[in-house]
């Protein structure tokens, strides 16, 4: 197998981009700037998927989130009067719960990373070698294959859920159909 192209440098670069982007999302007063920071974060996340040898997931991430959902976000945000939003005092009344939740999540990560069961760490030490060249085909087999496809039902149920949400949105938005 070839040596990995993605060095730790890229991981730290992408992770730093994501964290800075995430902080900017919640600190910017201008909603459009927040949305742009969120797009940067999502693109960096696609880069992380590439590093995990999952090009298909990275491609879908770019198409759906950065190219689709965020465009609709911007579409709505652009119509907000920025002047009024700038003057409004920003408030955060749930900081206590937020800190508790963040601490719990962080604790969970550390626990997963350090816990050993029967002498084995839960978090695998070595790097698993996935085939980058047939990633798409493997996902398809995992989803749809007659014998080894175990996620078909969950996948279809999830898409049904989305369909219900779309129909609900249309029904709520329009009085007469």
């Amino acid at each position: 197998m070839n040596p990995p192209v993605a060095t730790p440098f890229f991981f730290y670069l992408l992770a730093a981009t994501m964290i800075i982007g995430g902080i900017l999302v919640i600190t910017r007063k201008n909603a459009v700037h927040s949305a742009l920071a969120l797009i940067t974060t999502l693109l960096a996340q696609a880069g992380l998927y590439l590093m995990l040898y999952a090009p298909f997931v990275a491609g879908v991430q770019i198409i759906l989130y950065a190219g689709g959902i965020m465009v609709l976000f911007l579409f709505v945000i652009m119509l907000i009067s920025i002047e009024r939003a700038q003057k409004e005092r920003q408030f955060n009344k749930q900081w206590l719960i937020g800190i508790v939740a963040a601490a719990a999540l962080g604790g969970l990560f550390i626990a997963v990373y350090t816990t050993t069961t029967k002498g084995r760490v839960l978090f695998p030490e070595g790097r698993m070698s996935y085939g980058e060249s047939d990633n798409t085909q493997r996902i398809a087999t995992l989803l749809f294959d007659l014998h080894s496809g175990t996620y078909m039902f969950a996948f279809e149920i999830a898409s049904l859920l989305l369909l219900v949400a779309i129909i609900g949105a249309v029904v709520m938005a329009k009085k007469r159909i």
Partner: peptide, 8 residues
């Protein structure tokens, strides 16, 4: 995917 970014 990348060409859909141009709309941004």
């Amino acid at each position: 995917g990348v060409s859909s970014l141009s709309v941004l």
